[in-house]
Simulated assay, not measured.
Amino acid sequence: MIFEKGQRVVFIGDSITDCGRRDHAAPYGNGYMSLVQAFVTAAHPELGLTWVNRGVSGDTVRDLAARWERDVIEQRPDWLSVKIGINDVWRFFQDRPDQAVPLDEYTTTLRGLLADTVERTGCRLILADPYLIESDHGDPQYVMTAEYAAVVRTLAADFGARHVAVQAAFDRVLASTTPVDWADDRIHPNLAGHAVIARAFLETLS
């Protein structure tokens, strides 16, 4: 287990992280973050970790940048988990290109946020892939999402971060299932889909 006693673990991202944490499922949401918190706490109650969810539905990396000071820096994390990029890509395919984030902007913005945070807080990083729950790897959205996931993989190596290979986790389960088994829209997982993400996190944290 990578965490140490008394540490503060902050998660930030979009709707996949949010999952109702600001209303009906406060404070952790009812998605992967809640599952990770529950299983780590059950396995290591002696650590007395503090968990913080700062996911906001609909966010891109631009939105994270706008609230980063309040929702990350002021939280003084010992560990920061960042999972962002789905909306950055998806908006291109929703006929909302003005709200989508091109790959170069995504890369520059995310790298800058991570560098600033490590310098100012000294935290360690956990970086998780954006993904598409899709069996056809030639699907244009899958291909584009893979490019953004490659950025996350590169940043994880550059920052010495823990990398959570979420796309690979879904690709594995899709070898014997279909996308609708995990999500109605290839993006927002059902409980089993969130469990796929949580398992990928737990394997990375051990």
Rank of each mutant, 00 (worst) to 15 (best):
A198D: 01
P27C: 09
A65L: 12
C19G: 14
D185W: 13
G58W: 00
A157Q: 12
N87V: 07
V10L: 06
W79A: 05
R120N: 02
H24K: 15
V10K: 05
H44F: 12
R124D: 03
V9M: 13
Q37F: 14
E147D: 13
S57P: 06
I84F: 03
V164I: 01
F11E: 02
D136K: 08
L202S: 03
R120I: 05
I126Y: 00
S135Y: 05
G160K: 04
L127Y: 10
L191Y: 15
F11K: 01
L155V: 01
Y148C: 07
Y106V: 02
P27S: 07
V101P: 05
D95H: 14
R62Y: 12
Q99H: 11
D95V: 11
Y142C: 14
P140D: 01
A149Y: 06
I73Y: 07
R96L: 15
Q94A: 13
E69H: 14
H24S: 15
A65E: 13
T109W: 09
E134Q: 11
D129V: 00
T60D: 00
N30E: 13
L64A: 07
H194Q: 03
I16W: 00
S176Y: 08
R96K: 15
S206F: 12
L191Q: 14
S15L: 05
D181F: 13
K83C: 15
T178D: 11
R70P: 14
N53T: 08
Y32I: 01
D104A: 11
R70C: 14
M33L: 15
I126S: 02
A146C: 10
R8A: 01
D78Q: 00
V9Q: 09
D104G: 04
L205N: 00
G85V: 04
D78Y: 01
Q37N: 15
A42C: 03
F39A: 13
T109R: 10
V82M: 07
I2E: 05
V143P: 02
L174K: 00
V118Q: 09
L47D: 01
G138I: 11
P102H: 08
